[in-house]
Design a protein around this nucleic acid. Structure first.
Length: 537
DNA sequence: TTAAGGTTGCAGTG
DNA sequence: CACTGCAACCTTAA
């Protein structure tokens, strides 16, 4: 019996290694609807947000998504099909309606482990099962099935990278299926294919910000970028993440494939497979966790822990997260978010985030450490929100996992190791090329002062046409003082957690927060001396 | 109970 | 650039 099939794209915006698409076209499929449902929460303009974009995504990532959809549509058209773009409110509701109206017998979509995706898909699945529709929902966004790994580990996710790698083994190869043609798209009935909207059509016509991002979305771009990177086989084989240069921006030190992996423009299995091919022929080879293959396994690690940990994206109610009375200071947060902390290395990275939607991994570490346990002691959830919005590669599991890591809330606990907002960048970029590019106001500051412009004599500031306190802000804290205070606080917060995070109640947290506040106000009384010392050195 | 190891700290030294 | 001392956290495995 012939059936109408739907392949529902969400992530997995690709033709290659796409088991859902493969299954949808197979068998007695008469017509095939490849659909994407525009989610108003993801796309509709939110004027209250701190940057252009919707409630959930900055404009840079929206743009990347639209480009990816356009590319997917082109590829489908080459196969005699097209991407049917639907608008009509909540995606799960739209799905249920089209399943009914198009008399669909087979529904295929890639499994999604994020809480938002799980809730959305559960609603669709309940309807489909009741209606007798065949549902195929393969794991193809990740190398492994997180549920599988958790089962192998006795029901709990592995909490260290090493134990994860031991459990994981080797992933399945990508499906080699090449399509020559796809079944035709069926009648849409009352539905309209609205096509992939432009930024202007979404109501962002007056915003000129996204053009700065040098990374274009889509499967074609992803494959091109991967091939280009993999062409230097020795570089691939000897890749060592910590040795990359976070200040390199004309030619980034890493692959910048993360946004393509996030949207599934690139299959992680294909990438894994291609790296493996290079490894077997390589003379010299690095290993996980620092190798390029090791980076892909980090992605899997965070996907697995995130899937198996309730409230993974929060401090409260999160079993693996240290309960720490972070400071609630919107002014400090805003200075960090808007790139005006007065530390050029930090601010330049935050400007790169705004403009490009991407920064080097170690640059992310620098600013995340600075916001949380290193200097400002602001809650990691606040920083997480900023990254989630502005990064074109922001990925729920990985972003939250790394914020837990960097804030020493989970996975990593050596809170005495703090990135210096002054010397860390200097190691890689002593003349400050990165800072001059993203903070042009400092472009004529002599290299002796570029990382600490507040120490430049006034005559130097005048000559550089950048008066600190007027043209560029004074530092919001003294790193020397702040990082010592942070270490102290982390010690006390860790002591509070000695019986495990679940033993820390609201009362205890508030009590320690009060103690910190008191110490801060005492320190502020002695502040002028400190401030003066900082500004005249 | 103890020892070892943990993707990527810093400052100082040769 | 590679090494060390610094101060010292956690989890895992024995």
């Amino acid at each position: 019996m012939e059936v109408n099939a739907v392949v529902w794209f969400r992530k997995g915006l690709r033709i290659h290694d796409n088991p859902a698409l493969d299954r949808a076209r197979r068998g007695a499929t008469k017509v095939l609807y490849p659909i994407f449902v525009l989610d108003p929460r993801y796309l509709e303009r939110d004027r209250d947000a701190f940057s252009p974009g919707s409630a959930r995504a900055g404009l840079g990532r929206i743009q990347f998504l639209l480009e990816s959809l356009t590319d997917l549509d082109k590829s489908l058209r080459r196969l005699g099909s097209r991407l049917v773009v639907l608008r009509g409110g909540d995606p799960a509701e739209v799905l249920v309606r089209v399943l009914k109206e198009w008399n669909v017998g087979k529904l295929c979509y890639e499994s999604d482990t994020e809480p938002y995706g799980q809730a959305r898909d559960a609603r669709v699945e309940v309807f489909a099962s009741a209606a007798g529709i065949e549902v195929f929902s393969p794991v193809s966004h990740t190398l492994f099935d997180p549920a599988d790994i958790i089962r192998k580990n006795g029901g709990k996710p592995p909490l260290t990278y090493q134990s994860f790698v031991k459990l994981a083994g080797r992933p399945l190869p990508p499906i080699g299926q090449q399509f020559s043609a796809l079944p035709p798209v069926g009648d849409l009935g009352e539905w309209e294919d609205v096509g992939v909207p432009t930024i202007q059509e979404l109501g962002y016509g007056d915003v000129g910000q996204v053009e700065f991002s040098p990374f274009r979305g889509g499967e074609s771009e992803a494959l091109k970028r991967m091939d280009e990177y993999l062409s230097d086989k020795e570089k691939v084989a000897t890749f060592e993440k910590p040795k990359g240069d976070p200040s390199a921006f004309l030619k980034p030190a890493t692959t910048v494939l993360s946004p393509y992996l996030k949207f599934g423009c690139l299959s992680s299995r294909l990438f894994y497979h291609r790296i493996q091919e290079i490894y077997v022929k390589a003379k010299k080879l690095t290993s996980p966790p620092v190798s390029l293959l090791g980076q892909l396994l980090w992605r899997e690690f965070f996907y697995t822990v995130a899937f198996g940990t309730p409230n993974f994206d929060r401090m409260r109610g999160n079993e693996i997260c240290k309960q720490i009375p972070w400071k609630d200071d919107d002014q400090l947060l805003a200075s960090w978010r808007d790139g005006r902390t007065g530390f050029p290395w930090i601010d330049a990275i935050m400007v790169q985030l705004r403009q490009w939607g991407w920064m080097h991994h170690l640059a992310r570490h620098s600013v995340a450490c600075f916001l949380t346990r290193g200097d400002l002691f602001v809650h990691w959830e606040k920083g997480r929100d900023v990254f989630e919005r502005l990064l074109i590669d922001s990925d729920w599991a990985i972003n939250n996992g790394n914020w837990l890591w960097l804030s020493c809330s989970s996975f990593f606990y050596q809170y005495h190791r703090i990135y210096s907002p002054i010397t860390f960048g200097k190691k890689y970029d002593p003349t400050g090329k990165f800072i001059r590019h993203f903070l042009p106001v400092l472009k004529d500051m002599p290299k002796e002062y570029i990382y600490e412009p507040w120490t430049a004599p006034l005559s130097v500031q005048k000559k550089a046409k950048c008066i600190i306190g007027t043209d560029y802000p004074k530092p919001v804290v003294s790193h020397e003082v702040a990082n010592k205070q942070c270490r102290q606080k982390m010690g006390e917060a860790y002591a509070l957690n000695s019986g495990g995070p679940s033993q820390v109640n609201d009362e205890k947290l508030v009590e320690l927060r009060r103690k910190f506040d008191q110490e801060e106000s005492t320190a502020a009384d002695q502040g002028p001396k400190l401030k003066q010392k900082r500004l005249t050195t």
